[in-house]
Design a protein around this nucleic acid. Structure first.
Lengths: 207, 207, 207, 207
DNA sequence: CATGAATGAGGGTTCATTCAT
DNA sequence: TATGAATGAACCCTCATTCAT
């Protein structure tokens, strides 16, 4: 959609299979090596073409990340919206939000890494203003649940909500840096471990 | 082509006041803008000199981060060693480790940010191999305490130590991204909030 | 920091017509002005392109001289090998070696000049270690013939072979500094004058 | 004299002992590493001072070579003039010229190397126009003797004087590249070997 | 769709030189 | 005399991007 070079009359604005392949290759490199240090030539090399040829598919290097991030962000937002529509009690909501975060991570691994690593840097450009908005949306989603939980007496009332939010966010998102989707621990397991740690802490339950 | 540089009588390693100033300026920029995207010209501009003049003090842009990171890492390692020498019980040890982490963050704010953001990228170069070593040292320190706590029955025994370590590390270190040292919440307060969340979780204590 | 460059599908080593042109331009400048003082901008200017564009064809300024020298050296070594295979008597061998030296000089004029002027300086870098090897090969070739000639009684036996070799080498190679391929004296004539001087000296033959 | 920073009223315009030391250090580096690639910092390092401090003694890096070359050139010209004043027969003159060349080489080793390597490059600047003049003087000196020798029938009459001159010059001067003043072969011996080779060639004398 | 050649802006770095102290 | 900090110009090289073929 964004940055597509297809003309108006095109049926499939999101482009061909080749496009998707290239995007996956780029996402992988951006995630592993960083957006700034990844050169378009590296992407092209990995795709087996010359760097100039990439410009038949994309307007610019920026438009590649743009597309990568938008797709992930849309997916994540939809998953969160789902949870909210289901109207669980606060603890279950938290649990579900964490689970869906890991679900998105499972599907858009590279994109999450990129978001985690580069959002702050990219957000300063107008083109990526939506990254700020998405961040704020996420914050609102989580803090609302936390506040509700406090009102219900289910979360500790000495909780500094903003800190707690960041605490949760950091833990969940940064998992992407070490989480190995092909390892023994699948997303579900890790998600549940996280929820437990989040809710009960590391201390052994007293009797 | 050639290689060596600086020799007898030169300042590059001696450390003068000016040097320290320049290093602080560089650290600030590296932290705020990222190491890769920060240009030596920006550093020089911020210092009110020409870019070439930086090379009177430093061998390269790399040697600047190098120095910045080494100083922080040395300090942090010393603080952790102190804690271990004090031989507290596991929970107190955790508490103290968290506190000293925030203490280091207070003193080497920019360095911590840089470490957080760039370590992974830099560590791939021989020159920064010590970043990997330091990371491993930190991991060992924390996991030992967690394991001891489990053996003592004070930490939950269904705890996946490696995950817990990363959980803690992520939460503590990424704080640097939003923690404002001039804000109302000082390092001590935030550290203690963290320990509470870490230990008891976000749930209200039962009865 | 990183290092590698160029990869699959790239031209850097393939050699196209444009490449050869650029190499010739570079060789000419390196020979006339010196490798160190010749800037890539000068080369690019002479070629009517921008300096950056050179890097579409070559990895570096160094790799340009490298290629220039290797080609000449390979040619010269082949010519010498030919002479040896022909198994002449010592004096004829010397004559032929001199002739082929001038032949190589005729074909790779700039390269010879560069070799003459810069080999010593370049050879100190690993990349150009082959310059030392080539030099040693040349020395071995010549000294063997000189020694054989002495054993045969055709060369004076008070000849200090190493000195004689250098004597010959210096005379032959440095010719490139003033030899004008478009002048009246062609390579053959000069070569023969050299052989005469080398063999009989400047004195008039006695009776 | 040239490039001196001493003021008009100074008695010793050539400067102090320190000056001479620095000049020797510079000459050594220029000879070994090349004028262009030798940095003023290297010179300063070798002298145990900072690069800026050199400018208390010399106007510029150029003025250093300038002084080095002028001194050698003056000496050499004087030696040649001496030979001519002695009015020997052609062969003896040649012998003496070669000997005095080696004598100058012995005394101004570095300067000769520099002259050999850099004269062509430096001569293109107005400041070093005297290098061209000196070169022409040398040529005139040698060719006159060669021509006289031909007229006298002592040198072969099929000798191409210009080629012969260059032949001699190249052999004599380039010796500096490998001649080791501390080796077994002293200047006198090498000079005489040279004269023999020059006059009789490498062929064994017939019967 | 892809290639191959080029652009143009900018990046890190070097180095002779200056000058107040 | 020497230091130490700085200048300013230039250098090699990188890289996203363009475009004729």
């Amino acid at each position: 959609m964004v940055g597509s070079k297809r003309s108006a009359g095109d049926v499939a604005t999101t482009g061909s299979r080749r496009r998707a392949e290239l995007l996956a290759i780029a996402a992988d490199l951006f995630a592993r090596r960083g957006f700034v240090v990844t050169t378009v030539r590296e992407i092209a090399d990995a795709a087996g073409i010359l760097s100039g040829s990439l410009y038949h598919h994309f307007d610019s290097k920026e438009s590649m990340v743009d597309e990568i991030l938008r797709e992930f962000l849309g997916y994540q937002q939809e998953l969160y919206a789902e949870v909210l529509r289901e109207e669980h009690d606060p603890r279950t909501t938290i649990t579900e939000l964490v689970r869906r975060s890991f679900q998105a991570m499972d599907r858009y691994r590279s994109a999450v890494t990129i978001y985690q690593n580069e959002a702050k840097h990219l957000a300063q450009f107008d083109r990526f203003a939506y990254l700020r908005r998405a961040g704020n949306d996420f914050e609102r989603t989580w803090t609302k649940v936390l506040q509700q939980g406090q009102r219900d007496g289910v979360f500790r009332d000495d909780l500094h909500v903003k800190i707690a939010y960041r605490f949760i966010r950091d833990t969940v998102w940064t998992t992407v840096h070490w989480y190995n989707p092909r390892g023994r621990l699948n997303a579900q397991v890790i998600a549940d471990q996280h929820v437990t740690l989040l809710c009960e802490g590391i201390m052994a339950p007293r009797a």
